[in-house]
Amino acid sequence: MSRSRIPADWIFEEDAIKNSPSRKAGMNERDELKLKREAIDIMKKIGAEFGWKLNGATGAACVYFHRFYMLHSIQEFPCPTTSLSCLFLAGKSEETPKKCKDIAQNALKNFSHIFRVNLNQLMDDVMSMERVLLQTIKFDFTIDLPYRYIIMYANDFKSKRAFDAAMVSDIVCCAWPLVNDSFFTHLCLAWEPQIIAVSLFWLAIKLRQHEEINETKWWEEHVAELCSDKMETICHEVLDYYTLMNGGNNGGAAASG
């Protein structure tokens, strides 16, 4: 078992992310991301079937998942089962519990090409994996997600700056899916949720062509010392993900191949 040190806030140095246990065990970056994305996709789809929100149990599950693989390798614990246990645990921690059996059945129904075991076996695996997760994540189950900051900034724009409500909601509608897709990247391991929210909001403003708003450096009252270079880097993680997706297919259908 690898025993790296966990930073108190679970925000890791770039180096640590690049030298994750899976990478150290010989996996290349592309495969690591591919396997993780496949599993994030499983969580998003099953979560959606349960009526969970990404800004809720599904999002928490995704963060547990990313954190887990900073301490264990994919070679040691394959992603698909981990993803189911993350859902199982997040259901409980976010007070929208689902039975282990429901999760396993759903996985077998929708991802039969990935889970090639019978129901009982899969339930056993999910339960065993829950304990490994508990031991790894150590009850740090309360997750702060970028969404609430997006809402906060939007409200600020409307109330403090008296921006047009329709324009603000247009920006939010652009920022929200960017946050959704940030779960496919390692961003939640590298940056605090506020910084991810500011950066993706900043990107959304650019994409909706309201550059003049960004010129006011509106984020300075929320996050200190964040320069546009840094935001650029953060946004690129998400944009790179889109580029990768567009290379093959369109959007979310990525993992079904």
């Binding site: 199982f88 645990l89 409980k92 921690s93 007070e95 519990p97 039975k99 282990c100 339960m127 829950e130 304990r131 508990l134 009850f139 189950f141």
Partner: peptide, 9 residues
């Protein structure tokens, strides 16, 4: 159902 929800919360 694994570790009780109340414990986790």
């Amino acid at each position: 159902e694994g570790v009780p929800q109340s414990v986790i919360r």
